[in-house]
């Protein structure tokens, strides 16, 4: 069942000349994990803001079309109603951290305080969320004393703790090392399995191929392609547009020209590339990385 429905959404910021989103039509089902790829300036962050209600409620500007989450329409809701259903982790965690709290624990509890969750429940939820994202040991640190990657985890945790129906993530792993990236994708997948709907903007396409249910490729404010991760991420359209292409896809595409890649289907992930280049022997489970489910 569709939790999110966008119909003919076109949006222009107050000071931009051309629309940043143009006639976007999109449905996302409950519990679905959708990844959004696109070059810088494609409108990915604006799409996140639109889902999260900041467009147009906070940024103003001109919007047409409709944005529905869980049957409610954004234009007919206020931002404080909207955020009960939708949580957004900003691209730059620094822009999200409240500045009003001295510790990570308090920062994560901030949203719950605002919606009046009882103290005992609050503590349990914060502890649970911190343990989920692996930041329990940061509880007493100042949010500003953390590295970029750690701040991103705090930003993600402070949204997860709100248990939104729709989780919107704008490049949540951009400042993380590989191990952090892997963990965040794992957590997000787990949330989707438990029924949370996820829209994630991300450049790391191998991880998308591994974890997401569907990929949307955005360019110049329009949906260029959408579909199953492998199909979208290996399409010639992305290569021609110069974004969303993994190194495994591009090396296999070149290898195909020289005859050392013999299949029709191109790989996105390491495992797919290894299988395709050498059908036997197959790689060990350890080398495959963790499985999707």
């Amino acid at each position: 069942m569709a939790l999110v429905t966008l119909q003919n959404v076109t949006y222009k910021y107050p000071l931009t000349k051309t629309p940043v989103l143009q006639n976007i039509n999109l449905q996302v089902n409950e519990g679905e994990f959708v990844a959004v790829v696109g070059p810088n300036g494609a409108g990915k962050s604006t799409l996140c803001y639109a889902l999260a209600g900041f467009v147009p409620h906070f940024f103003k500007g001109e919007i047409s079309g409709s944005i529905e989450v869980d049957g409610k329409e954004s234009s007919k809701s206020t931002l404080d109603e909207w955020v009960l259903n939708v949580g957004l982790a900003f691209q730059n965690p620094f822009n999200q951290i409240s500045g009003a709290k001295y510790t990570v624990f308090e920062e994560i509890a901030f949203g719950l305080e605002n919606i009046g969750v009882p103290r005992s429940e609050m503590k349990a939820r914060v502890d649970e969320a911190m343990s989920l994202t692996g930041i329990s040991d940061l509880a007493d640190r100042s949010p500003y004393s953390l590295s970029g990657g750690q701040q991103q985890r705090v930003a993600l945790t402070s949204i997860l703790v709100m248990r939104p129906r729709l989780l919107v993530l704008d490049e949540p792993t951009s400042q993380m090392d590989p191990i952090g990236t892997r963990e965040v994708f794992g957590v997000v997948r787990k949330m989707a399995e438990e029924g949370m709907t996820v829209v994630m903007v991300e450049h790391k396409v191998e991880w998308i191929a591994h974890f997401a249910d569907r990929v949307i490729a955005l360019k110049e404010g329009q949906i260029l392609l959408e579909g199953k991760p492998n199909k979208v991420l290996t399409s010639d359209v992305l290569m021609e547009n110069g974004f969303g292409v993994s190194r495994y896809t591009s090396v296999a595409r070149e290898a195909k020209k020289q005859g050392s890649w013999k299949q029709d289907k191109l790989p996105v992930t390491l495992f797919e590339a290894a299988e395709g280049f050498a059908p036997t022997p197959s790689p060990s489970p350890r080398e495959r990385g963790e499985s999707k489910k």
Binding site: S246, Y248, V251, E254, L270, A273, A278
Partner: peptide
């Protein structure tokens, strides 16, 4: 130090290529 080797280095290793490769 939690650094993964380059993607094509890992692929080369999995395929058992004789020499280490680091790029396309």
């Amino acid at each position: 130090t939690y650094v993964d080797p380059p993607q094509l280095t890992r692929l080369g290793k999995m395929l058992g290529l004789k020499d280490t490769v680091i790029n396309q």
